[in-house]
């Protein structure tokens, strides 16, 4: 079951500054991202300025500040994928969707996340869309994949 921010903070009544990251993780797990409201709420509870929390959260790749899109695309940037051109794939994807890694498209349809290694090096370069893996992605196949998803929605 999903838990609200208040509930998460309530459950950690005596939390101090050092619980900041676990709290942020739990909020992201439940809400899918860290909203400004959530950060302000956590700041009030732990007595940490929001600028500091935002600083900590942006330090780590795992936190997002926008809700996930309907299609959440993870682009693997592990070594094997990198060698086989994942940088070009990511670049192409960002251009196609007009959104950067960590962002969500304006229509809320797609979001991009860069991940380290998915553990599917044999399929490199690989992307994962809502649990479906797409192997040996090229710029061309990427266009097709995105087109297919867009067509599904029309």
């Amino acid at each position: 079951m999903k838990k609200g921010i208040a509930e998460i903070l309530e459950a950690r009544g005596d939390a101090k500054r050092d619980s900041l990251i676990p709290i942020l993780q739990e909020i992201q797990e439940n809400e899918g991202f860290l909203s400004q409201r959530a950060i302000a709420e956590v700041g009030r509870r732990l007595g940490i300025p929001t600028s500091k929390i935002y600083g900590v959260a942006t330090f780590y790749n795992q936190f997002r500040f926008e809700p996930k899109g309907k299609y959440h695309i993870q682009v693997c940037r592990g070594t094997a994928c990198h060698v086989l051109g994942s940088a070009t794939v990511l670049d192409k994807l960002e251009k196609l969707l007009k959104a950067k890694a960590g962002q969500t498209t304006r229509d809320g349809m797609f979001s991009i996340e860069v991940v380290a290694c998915i553990g599917a090096c044999g399929l490199a370069p690989v992307i994962n869309i809502n649990g479906n893996f797409h192997a040996k992605v090229t710029e061309q196949s990427l266009v097709e994949i995105i087109e297919n998803l867009k067509n599904k929605e029309v």
Partner: peptide, 28 residues
């Protein structure tokens, strides 16, 4: 005691900015 600004991001992408990297006028 204001802490309007802090480090944002990591490594070569680091910059100094406000909460949520918004304009200074809407910060504390």
């Amino acid at each position: 005691g204001v802490s309007a600004i802090d480090y944002i991001n990591r490594g070569s992408k680091t910059l100094i900015g406000t909460s949520f990297n918004k304009g200074l006028n809407t910060s504390s």
